[in-house]
Design a protein around this nucleic acid. Structure first.
Lengths: 142, 142
DNA sequence: TAATACATTATATTAATTCTAAACTGTTGA
DNA sequence: TCAACAGTTTAGAATTAATATAATGTATTA
């Protein structure tokens, strides 16, 4: 498996030893064809389906948090009961479909750069995210 | 109290009868000099401090949700363990100070209109919010 | 006033997340 | 080889926000 080294590298850089469980988590997160959004529960389910090894909730939480801290994963700002994470850490934004509870990427090119004129003394901007809530467009109810 | 009628009106329009408890909630929310951000817990604490009446958690949750549905309050999209609400329902954005867990308004004029070029078939955009995370700017660590 | 509809409350429940402590694993160095 | 150690994993407990429940209370209507 050619990717193994990348995973080991990511884990080490996140301050974690490369264990079976953590490498499995990496495979699911970073070996996917496309980037994707997930909750912890969903991630655990994917691992269970794919893997011959079991990974406990605690390990998944810990590993995801370590990756977040390092910037290998991103949390999506939302008001949901569970946290949503994104394997796409490049600069982009999201639609959130409130009716279906689904996230859709908005590519960077589809939004003009958000330019905030106001500054806060002693603080710098770490990230800027746009969340656009969408709902059904019932034109008939016009 | 000149505002009482407004509160009664807001409550009725939200489908709620104007009771002592609910009017007290209105006073705290809508009688403030400035708009503000709050969590349910904080709101309960403010009421306890100001009021001679006790309002249960359940009533606060129910009333806040009814106001949200009607658009008299807004929930701020964030990844926090608790939900944050805003009495300012005009179009504006937020800084979120991750170190101090504090929200700061960004006035509409301080951000160019966010123009999203992408559309989703059958869906319309209900709201667009910008969250800018800020952290200490330690220039020395340059 | 009786009947009805809606409110309030304390408490129980649920569910995500975090914590804990015990068992486990792998590495190091004698 | 093996003992010691540092870091891991895990199941289950604890925590906490939010929601549901059901008993009691209140107000309105006829």
């Amino acid at each position: 498996m050619a990717y193994a080294d990348q995973y080991i590298d990511k884990l080490r850089k996140s301050g974690l030893r490369p264990t079976k469980q953590r490498i499995k988590i990496c495979e699911v997160l970073f070996d996917a064809e496309k980037t994707f959004h997930f909750t912890i529960k969903e991630l655990v389910k994917i691992i269970e389906n794919q893997a011959n090894i079991k990974v406990s909730l605690a390990t998944v939480y810990n590993t995801v948090h370590a990756f977040m801290k390092k910037g290998y994963l991103k949390e999506i700002p939302l008001n949901a009961s569970q946290s949503y994470y994104d394997t796409n850490v490049t600069h982009h934004h999201h639609f959130f479909d409130e009716e279906e509870n689904k996230l859709i990427d908005i590519h960077q090119d589809d939004v003009d750069e958000v330019n905030i004129k106001r500054t806060i003394p002693g603080k710098k901007i770490k990230s800027v995210e746009v969340i656009a809530k969408i709902v059904s467009d019932n034109q008939s109810q016009k």
